[in-house]
Design a protein around this nucleic acid. Sequence first.
DNA 1: GGAAGCAGGTTGTCATGTCAACCATGGAGT
DNA 2: ACTCCATGGTTGACATGACAACCTGCTTCC
Lengths: 146, 146
Amino acid sequence: MNAKPLSPRELRIWYAFLSMGEDVLERVGGDIARATGLSGPEFGVLSRLAGYGKGEMRQQELATVMGWEKSRLSHQLSRMEKRKLVERLSGDGRSTIIALTKIGREKLEAALPIRAESVRRNLLSRLTAEQVEMIIRVSNLLDDED
Amino acid sequence: MNAKPLSPRELRIWYAFLSMGEDVLERVGGDIARATGLSGPEFGVLSRLAGYGKGEMRQQELATVMGWEKSRLSHQLSRMEKRKLVERLSGDGRSTIIALTKIGREKLEAALPIRAESVRRNLLSRLTAEQVEMIIRVSNLLDDED
DNA sequence: GGAAGCAGGTTGTCATGTCAACCATGGAGT
DNA sequence: ACTCCATGGTTGACATGACAACCTGCTTCC
């Protein structure tokens, strides 16, 4: 357990891997923010809410589909509630229902085509079919592990 | 300018791309943090400092090689100074020299093999030669664009 | 020499994330 | 009924990040 530090070649691969993700994410997030004022996390919450049923979901379920801890989601929802993007409806006592507001839905509708255009321009249009296959394969690979 | 929303297939690719980066980054960062107590940003600053000359660099130069804004770096250095990982030496009046401390260097030395092992285990060992080529190619592609 | 301007840093404010401690409700088991 | 306790949420403290406003020495240029 005293591995040799990464070689220059290994370092290059590692940095390339890191910058690949950061860069694309920043571009797409920036496009959405400039067009609608929504941040990445805000967009994420709104799109999940809209994607299930009528734009309502139990908070715990929302946390699960987003892959977030409960406290992270609670903080995020508090900020979004202040900005009228979502509202908290009292559930059955120990649970809480999160619902899209009118404003939240409108902003989301405006953001969807922007994201589509940006993802296509910044990522999809630059990938060959083999590269797409690889992304899916590597991603599945990594998801499955311990 | 009213693009159709992403299709389910496009969405799958996008989410796969996102999770690929997040997941690996979280594992490597977690390994380093558990072993040494260093966070990702802290490790980044220390390794850049050690990588150039004797562990000293002008603050502005450090910002450039990290690709960070000056205010982000200033905040980060303040926190790291409080933890005795780096120190600020007065430069020529309008500049500041940032230097590794003994503690900073020791923690960095401890972290390097951990990172190497973790990057190999979580990324490099899972990629074929073609996949490595592709990562470098896609990354270069994306770096060059406006 | 004096005004303008810029480069290098700092600071404040707010959004985002993580972690741990805490609170409240609904059951389970006795 | 009463104690326990797991589940669902909130809160506080702190690290991280982005952005804008603000200082402060040089230079430049007239």
